[in-house]
Simulated assay, not measured.
Amino acid sequence: MSKRDYYDILGVTRSSDGAEIKTAYRKLAIKYHPDKNPDDKAAEDKFKEAAEAYEILSNPEKRQRYDQFGHSGNSASGFGGGNMNMDDIFSQFGDIFGGGSPFEGFFGGGRSSRGNGRRVQKGTNLRIKVKLTLEEIAKGVEKKIKVNKQVACETCDGTGAKDKSSYHTCSTCQGSGSVRRVTNTILGQMQTTSTCPTCNGQGVEITAKCTVCKGDGLVRGEETISINIPAGVSEGMQLSMSGKGNAAPHGGIPGDLIILVEEVVHESLKRDGINVIYDLYINFADAALGTSIEVPTIDGKAKIKIDPGTQAGKILRLKGKGVPEVNSYHKGDQLVYVNIWTPKAVSAEERSLLEKLKTSVNFKPQPGKSEKSFFERIKEYFE
């Protein structure tokens, strides 16, 4: 069966603005709300239908797609496929009815109250920097860090009360954190729900505060936290540890610990993504005659072969000697850039030898037989 037009559902026109659409939806939401129409399947279907129409028409981008393509224009939306969920609907209503529980001002919360209404606070997040060497980044590491943060007061066990007799269930709301009032309106008898003024939504009363934490239930403390950092992380990357931030008042939910990765500069290796670069400097004789030489890597020393006649700018690759990708088995390579070191001063004997070499046929540049340029070699390497 084809769907009804969203504008018809809300009783508005295609030229209606956002305020008119919101007002129309508010009226329908009140009229067909399940708490006002218990066990009425027809009313529940109209309630869902109105919610779907409002979800599309209240969003400028979705409304434009609907105007242009009809119902198919928002087929990827969370609504419109018969998959409506009451919790999904209620979560959309903060801007309609104002407040965390969208229908609490009309029906005492109903299905949207989600529990007893007691306010649970969450602690604030903490941010720290962790410095890592290239070796630690390549292999992954476990770091033990001392973090200064808010922790539950040991004197009062985080309650904020001086003793057990000073901490008890709120007599006004009976621990629910909210109070309800029934009023008669033209729509019938309605309930209004609001935060308990006695306990401020906590559900408990404190008659005498803890002398250490002054009733907050929190004090400054230090905790040693073990952080497992995976291999392959990079500068500026953020890791998160749930529940390792500041504690929350009165046994609430702790915040999170955000770890910012900072790379320590290596003395001889440079990182380029998952690859590692090393600048190798050899003398003219070794370049001409060839040699074997040790170069540093993340895992220690590695011996490489320099072929006779090696030109400046040649790139040698050590496969698998780079950094792994995060949460992957793939590893980069180490690229060795060959540089020919030219002495700035020579002795009289060295000068004499070089003067003789200048006239040798093998030491003269040969047109048409020159090596490829440095940039051409890099392009070939990556191709």
Rank of each mutant, 00 (worst) to 15 (best):
A285W: 15
K331V: 15
V265H: 08
S360K: 00
I30C: 09
I306V: 08
E104G: 06
E104K: 11
K149R: 05
S360E: 09
N83M: 00
L10Y: 13
K321M: 04
G94N: 05
K305G: 15
Y6Q: 13
Y66M: 04
I225F: 05
V12T: 01
I145G: 03
D40Y: 00
A348H: 06
Q174Y: 14
E205L: 07
V265D: 07
N362A: 10
D279N: 04
V336I: 15
V147F: 00
F97P: 08
E61N: 04
D39W: 12
P296Y: 14
E350C: 04
T169F: 13
L126M: 00
G94H: 10
V323N: 09
K41G: 07
G300K: 09
T169D: 00
G245N: 01
E136I: 07
D279W: 12
P249H: 10
H168F: 14
E222P: 12
P254K: 01
E55M: 13
T211I: 05
D216G: 06
S240N: 09
K36S: 15
K48C: 02
K143Y: 11
M190L: 14
P296L: 06
T224V: 13
D67V: 01
P102C: 04
V326K: 08
K379H: 13
G368A: 08
F93V: 01
I137V: 01
V219E: 01
Y167T: 01
K146C: 13
